[in-house]
């Protein structure tokens, strides 16, 4: 924890601070949707922010990697084509994002700067400030304790808030966070010894609340990278996947995409569109050949990318932040903890 410079925000001052953020940035926060679902959305007034909300079903990756992301506008201007890159320069704050989603964004950033730098992603990431809310109580499906991505953060956030009852404990994790606090000095006061002690006690207590909930990645990694998963097990597990792709849509670390042209008025707009390695057409070649025509091969691919030692060495993290969204979303039984448990056992059922 970054105790030096830690601040306290009285909850009575929260509205004032949020108003200031909304004035200066596009603020994204968990809000109540039409059917009562909690979702990440832009807010235009502090009242829209749902305090202590359940983690939204969709991660906030859509604000860094929009499902349909215009890259260039292509116009036929008579004597030839004209191409104009489309850049998103919006200054965003993602408020009350949870620890797992901060780690998800950290993962996405690492893959987009690895090797060739994806400037369109980096531009958005640089213009986004992450203000996270630590989890005093783990959520129902979360296993962030197994992926080192919660319930409290050591890094990745710009600011981390902890709910101390009538006040919020505020610690900064980056230069961006510190300068944001500097521009809102009036709302904050320095944290005292008692505040710090309470914050540390809450983290310790939260870590103790996970109980038996575990996901043994190390042993799954050994089996996948040691090529020691029986083919029959993949066959069996694939029977519990409906190929809907929802796990990849709600996963904070999934980023596969395709590139397509869309017609908008007199212009072609080339878009980067979210895709899923779980769809059969993902690897379908023009010749008709498909190296991953079988569902089990696509499932194998997903878990190789998530938990293999090869990708772990490349990305310096496994591709899971323990948010538990795939558990809630999967209509079958192809979620991370279920598959990892089966990989570890070497058998689908005990």
């Amino acid at each position: 924890m970054q105790q030096a410079g830690a601040k306290i925000l009285r909850k009575a001052s929260l509205t004032g601070w949020l108003s200031q953020l909304i004035e200066r940035h596009e603020v994204i926060a968990p809000v109540a949707g039409h059917a009562g679902d909690i979702l990440f959305s832009r807010v235009t007034s502090p009242q829209e922010v749902v305090a202590n909300a359940d983690n939204p079903l969709n991660p906030p990756k859509q604000f860094l990697l929009p499902p349909t992301d215009p890259i260039i506008a292509i116009r036929d201007i008579g004597d030839g084509y004209h191409i104009e890159p489309i850049h998103d320069h919006r200054q965003r704050v993602i408020f009350n994002i949870r620890s797992c989603d901060v780690k998800g964004i950290k993962f996405l950033t690492s893959v987009h700067v690895f090797d060739l730098v994806d400037t369109s992603y980096v531009r958005r990431a640089e213009n986004t400030i992450l203000i996270s809310l630590a989890c005093n109580v783990p959520c129902a499906d979360g296993f962030c304790i197994c992926t080192d991505s919660g319930p409290f953060l050591q890094d990745g956030h710009d600011l981390q808030l902890t709910d101390l009852g009538d006040r919020l404990f505020v610690e900064s994790g980056s230069e961006k966070g510190r300068s944001l606090l500097d521009t809102a000095d009036a709302f904050f006061q320095p944290a005292n010894e008692e505040d710090i002690a309470q914050r540390l006690a809450l983290e310790k207590a939260a870590r103790g609340l996970f109980g038996e909930r575990t996901c043994h990645f190390a042993s799954a990694m050994r089996r996948i990278s040691g090529r020691r998963v029986p083919e029959a097990l993949w066959d069996e597990m694939a029977d519990w996947c409906l190929e809907c792709g929802a796990c990849t849509m709600v996963c904070p670390t999934c980023y596969c995409f395709s590139i397509k042209d869309r017609r908008e008025c007199e212009t072609w707009v080339r878009c980067r569109i979210s895709d899923s390695c779980q769809y059969a057409a993902f690897t379908l070649e023009a010749s008709g050949h498909n190296p991953r025509a079988e569902r089990k091969d696509r499932m194998k691919r997903r878990f190789f990318h998530k938990v293999s030692a090869e990708y772990y060495r490349r990305d310096e993290a496994i591709g899971c932040v323990g948010c538990g969204r795939c558990i809630r979303t999967c209509l079958g039984a192809a979620d991370m903890p279920t598959v990892v448990a089966a990989l570890r056992r070497g058998a689908w059922r005990e």
Partner: peptide, 10 residues
């Protein structure tokens, strides 16, 4: 090397 369509292993 970003979109993952042509990945074989890593």
């Amino acid at each position: 090397g970003k979109c993952n369509h042509c990945a074989i292993g890593h």
